[in-house]
Design a binder for these strands. Structure first.
Length: 234
DNA sequence: GCGACAG
DNA sequence: ATCTTGTCGC
């Protein structure tokens, strides 16, 4: 892990954030393929592992996944997550045999102090519609949600709405759904809502998380798929 | 000055 | 994020 110039990265974020497109700017009426993207770590954090899972829409069946491992270059610093994670995400992205119409990224999009969370930064780099799906707040404030499933409240930061705080499931903490790139806030929530299957997280995110973190659920699934070396292809 | 702080 | 099984509560 190298030394990082935080002031330089901050300047880069401010300069780059202006390129993020916050409204719907895509060709599809309904997406055919939606991806989930997530990052995990190995060997005490020395190795970064990114996973991207491709799901058919609206059936939400897994059709492909790719994993990439690279040496970790940066420590985790709140507000600078994208610089730590995007290199591995790009590596996994380049391994895909086909490109998805929409990508759900684990983490925030514009709901970031300088409006450039990992979902927005990665979206700009691949120039694809992306949505940020985060489990915890990074910035902004919101009114308490009712207990009802589907309850929502705007996340407000510096006077503007930067995300939807949304209760995806009864008795579960809400998710933070934000524009990544080329997807408006309301559309972002719309597509996430259409990818739910009874869990707190949408299916693309669940699969990406399971693959990136090598969850036992994923290992069991691999067992049933009898494809032993898909996970260690390099 | 103090607290907050994605993964 | 990661180390990790069972366990308490709805």
């Amino acid at each position: 892990m190298e030394i990082v110039d935080i002031a330089g990265l901050r300047a880069q974020q401010i300069a780059t954030a202006g390129n993020v497109i916050r409204h719907d700017a895509f060709d599809f009426q309904t997406p055919s393929i939606i991806a989930g993207a997530d990052v995990g770590f190995e060997q005490g954090g020395e190795v970064t592992r990114a996973a991207i899972a491709l799901l058919r829409f609206p059936s939400l069946e897994l059709i492909e996944y790719q994993v990439a491992r690279i040496n970790t270059t940066m420590p985790y610093i709140p507000g600078f997550l994208s610089f730590r994670e995007y290199p591995a995400l790009l590596a996994a992205w380049q391994r895909l045999s086909q490109q998805p119409d929409l990508v759900f990224v684990d983490g925030h999009g514009i709901s970031h102090p300088r409006r450039l969370g990992v979902a927005s930064h990665f979206g700009l780099l691949i120039d694809r519609p992306t949505i940020g799906v985060a489990k915890r707040r990074l910035c902004g404030r919101f009114e308490p949600l009712s207990d009802e499933p589907d309850a929502r409240a705007p996340l407000i930061d510096k006077g503007e709405q930067v995300a939807w705080v949304w209760r995806s499931k009864l008795r579960c903490n809400p998710l933070f759904i934000s524009t990544g790139h080329r997807v408006g806030l309301d559309s972002a929530l719309h597509w996430v809502r259409r990818c739910m299957r009874g869990y707190r997280l949408p299916e693309p995110t669940r699969w990406a998380d399971a693959v990136a973190s090598n969850r036992m659920a994923f290992q069991r699934w691999r067992q049933g798929q009898e494809s032993p070396d898909l996970f260690n292809p390099q």
